[in-house]
Amino acid sequence: MVQIGYTMMTEQAGPRELVDHVVRAEQVGFDFSVTSDHYFPWLAAQGHSPYAWCVLGAAAQATSRIPLMTYVTCPTRRYHPAVVAQKAATMQLLSNGRFRLGLGSGEKLNEHVVGGDWPTASVRLEMLEEAVQIIRALFAGGYVSHQGTHFDVEAAKLWDLPDRPPPIGIAVSGELSCDLAGRLGDLVIATEPKPELVEAFDRHGGAGKPRVGQVPVSYGPDRDAALHRAHDQFRWFGGSWKVNSELPGPASFVGATTFVKPEDVVASIPCGDRVEDFVEAVRPYAEAGFTEIALVQIGGDTQPAFLDWAEKELLPALREL
């Protein structure tokens, strides 16, 4: 059976609200949760971007059952991989083994804040691979020293290690990242329901490992209002990842989406309250071989109503996939 998850979208709600939302998501029966890790929102209309790791720590204490995961953290620019390893190990302890570390090669939107040139996509993948190797070495215990192409580590050691290190997920968008995820990841992460991503992940060593996808939705009894909200806050979602990863700030995303119309948004994001529309948006992921699918309800102030509706109508329907 496909597991259905809930997304704490840090770009659209404050830290206290995010924790309240995931507590309710646990209560209504979501199977897992994921958390974005941003410094900026995609668009200013979203309006938020608290520090994800503080939110995760609070969520670990406020919940008892629901698994938690970053979706995703970039361990190469804003954070050094040795620091990511320490954060992830601590989260695994705080959550009593419910944490998974989702990693990706990053977007300029978030990573440019520390300065320096933004590397090419191929270099970012090289950096991600080296970062994963450092994180795994630290998870293994003992002192780690490393002088690599992109990172140096001098006599680092994690003093608080869980018995079981956090599983590592790696975000993919093409053959090279699928190769990395298959070799070094415990699960794969994607935002598109492409069977070829799953096939490439399996081919490179990922067979039998979890596959986690994500679907944006815009629930609301007034379909026009739900559509307007999706267009206002999520019209960037349909853009090419090659473009999205290169834009430096919300103003750039406004410019890049100037000609995106509401009808373009509704083609990929279900809007309103017809359960069947939401099921059909999730179905391609299940058919592509994804084992876990996280929903993103658009609009921070709409989460309570969405979660109530999900408990009564949406989750029972999705359980049949």
Rank of each mutant, 00 (worst) to 15 (best):
L128G: 02
T291N: 07
C74Y: 10
V296G: 00
G205L: 12
Q297V: 04
V123H: 14
V215D: 00
E320P: 06
V114T: 14
P248K: 01
D186S: 02
F139E: 02
L197H: 06
F201D: 01
D160V: 00
G47C: 11
T302Y: 13
Q92C: 01
Q92Y: 11
A190K: 00
K108R: 13
S252M: 11
E130Y: 03
G300T: 09
C74M: 09
G102S: 11
L184W: 05
E192W: 03
E130S: 01
I269M: 10
S49A: 15
G14R: 07
P195F: 03
L138N: 03
L295P: 05
L314D: 07
P167C: 09
G148F: 15
H80I: 04
M1S: 07
R229W: 11
E287M: 07
E17R: 15
H80A: 13
N244K: 09
D273Y: 05
L295A: 09
A82D: 01
E26M: 15
Q61I: 00
A89N: 00
F32Y: 15
E313P: 02
V217T: 03
L187P: 05
E263N: 04
G14D: 13
D37H: 11
C178S: 12
G97Q: 11
A60S: 14
V172G: 11
A181G: 03
V19T: 05
G169E: 08
G239V: 11
G238F: 13
L176T: 14
A25Q: 13
E196N: 02
R124F: 13
C74A: 10
E292N: 15
H146P: 11
V188G: 05
E129H: 01
S95K: 08
G300L: 15
D117N: 14
E26G: 08
G57I: 10
A281V: 06
E129A: 06
A200N: 07
S177V: 01
P15Y: 14
V254M: 10
G213W: 02
L180M: 11
P119D: 14
W236A: 04
V123Q: 14
F32Q: 14
V279F: 13
G14T: 05
H150T: 08
G106C: 12
A310Q: 06
I298F: 12
L109Y: 07
V83E: 09
L318S: 00
G238K: 08
G97Y: 14
I293G: 04
V212T: 00
Q297K: 12
V188Y: 05
T63C: 12
Y143R: 12
G14C: 10
R183M: 09
P284H: 10
A156L: 10
A226H: 06
P270F: 08
A45W: 08
G208M: 09
D179W: 06
P165L: 09
E199N: 02
E107S: 03
A140F: 12
L187G: 01
A60Y: 13
A288H: 02
A267C: 04
F237Q: 07
A58K: 09
T258K: 10
N96W: 04
L314E: 06
E11A: 15
G29Q: 11
A82V: 04
E175P: 12
E17N: 06
E26P: 07
S177W: 03
K108F: 13
L295D: 06
S36K: 02
R183C: 07
D20F: 06
V132P: 05
L161S: 02
M91A: 08
P248Y: 04
T35M: 09
H146V: 09
H112F: 05
K209T: 03
T149Y: 01
D264L: 05
P75R: 07
V123R: 15
A294R: 03
D163N: 10
E263G: 04
